[in-house]
Amino acid sequence: MIGSHVTNVHQTLMIENSEVSKSGSNTSGSLDHPPPTGRRTFLGWVIGLGTVSVAGLLSIPLVRFALDPLTRAATSTGWSDLGPTSDFSETTAPQKRTISITQTDGWRTVLSEKSIYVVKKASGELTVLTAICPHLGCSVKYNESNNQFKCPCHNGAFTTEGKLVSGPPPRDMDNLEMRIQDGHLQVRYQTFRQLVKSKEVLA
């Protein structure tokens, strides 16, 4: 049985050879007649170039995918509404407000609450101060009895308009960017570097 199979195999083999090859010896398993070196090198370049260009094409979506967060980095906290400006026209003492701010962090949204003070300056202008002390970040509290802001942590004191009076804080209280939109006071919440003389935005 096996013998006849082998013969069959050899018959086919002969046909196969006459079809495929016109030249060359029949030494079994030999590496006969590789194309001339010049052609091999040229083909190598063509294949290399082709592969690199296909890979390059494919890497475009991959690179864009990986760089996606960079295209979103510019998003800053939006404007928080503090209500009609008329709410603040009567007052002389700073008004404390809590605003909720929303920050986008990839696939999540982080909510937090921040305290701010709306202050009417002597000139009648409104200004918004963050309650975070520029010293080490405690919450500054307004003291009605002596019309001063006082930080409970190390006794930093500020005037009604947030000017530094005494204590360890290196600078005045930080004011926030604000605008009036349709009669409403709006503020953009930011945090600032602590312990430095000049105001530097962190986030």
Binding site: V6, V9, H10, T12, L13, I15, E16, N17, V20, S21, G24, N26, S28, G29, S30, L31, D32, P34, P35, R40, L43, G44, I47
Partner: peptide, 18 residues
Amino acid sequence: PISEDPYEPKQKSEQFYP
């Protein structure tokens, strides 16, 4: 190919490259 001897290949071979 299927006509080849799986133990001792006898057909004229060609290199993988190119």
